[in-house]
């Protein structure tokens, strides 16, 4: 598919026009912001005032309400970037480039926060800030990949060309992340036979699940809001670059 086929005005192609995209999604920003704020207030109220302490971990279970959503986002953001990378490579969709670039720093921050809260949760429960446990280690590697992607975006001058190259690397990373996870799990079980941390999924009582779910959606909507806002900024930044180039050409001619 070449870039200069005659544009059919279905929603997909209209979404591909950056100006149209900004115009269409700007009305979504305020509702998203309000929804996120309400979810956070509700989630924090549940987390601190309306949920019991765990019978084993005591009050430290409250760290879970910020830890798990961040850990989920660290992977969800990468999935978003991978889908956007496919959009860039397969359909050459202009907004996919923008989405990919806007998501990378957000993912890096959420991953860093997941590690930070994990360390603060680990100290009282395991007795150490850092354990070379499979899950923590692969999250650390994920953070390194995010930071590499952010550095890669900053290294390119031509953002349009950068998008396709970075999309290739994002997808290579997406293929590699399960392999890294597997290898790190193999490695850590080899070095420490007894796992210190067993996730007790379905045995969690409802009183803990409710705040967890609310916070989960709060963080997810926070990401969606910030991602959309960052995409708008990126569209404007590209227009600034275009205008600067045009002014420079006009000045020299």
């Amino acid at each position: 598919m070449t870039a200069d086929t005659e544009p059919k005005l279905n929603w997909w192609n209209r979404l591909a026009n950056p100006g149209q995209f900004v115009a269409w999604t700007t009305p979504l920003l305020w509702p998203l912001t309000i929804l996120t704020a309400v979810l956070f207030v509700l989630g924090l109220w549940f987390a601190f005032f309306n949920s019991p302490a765990d019978y084993q971990m005591g009050d430290t279970v409250r760290i879970m309400y910020v830890h798990v959503p961040n850990a989920w986002l660290s992977q969800f953001v990468y999935a978003t970037m991978s889908v956007s990378a496919l959009g860039t490579l397969v359909w050459r969709h202009p907004m996919a480039d923008v989405s990919m670039k806007a998501a990378a720093p957000l993912g890096a921050l959420f991953t860093a926060l997941a590690l930070f809260t994990g360390a603060l949760w680990g100290r009282p429960t395991w007795g150490t800030f850092w354990e070379w446990d499979g899950r923590m280690t692969s999250t650390l590697v994920l953070l390194l990949i995010y930071l590499g992607l952010v550095a890669l975006w900053r290294a390119f001058d031509d953002q349009l060309r950068a998008a396709r190259i970075i999309a290739v690397f994002t997808l290579v990373g997406a293929i590699n992340i399960p392999i890294i996870k597997f290898s790190v799990d193999w490695w850590s079980t080899l070095h420490q036979p007894a796992s210190v941390f067993r996730p007790d999924g379905p045995r969690m009582p409802g009183s803990i699940l409710v705040p967890l779910f609310v916070m989960f959606f709060a963080f997810t909507f926070l990401f969606l809001t910030l991602h959309l806002k960052a995409m708008h900024t990126e569209v404007k930044r590209r227009r600034v670059m275009t205008l600067k180039r045009r002014l420079a050409q006009g000045g020299s001619a």
Partner: peptide
């Protein structure tokens, strides 16, 4: 910086 995270499984195995 890009290659090192990808190479971790190679080092491990």
């Amino acid at each position: 910086i890009l290659i090192a995270p990808l190479s971790i499984p190679v080092l491990i195995f």
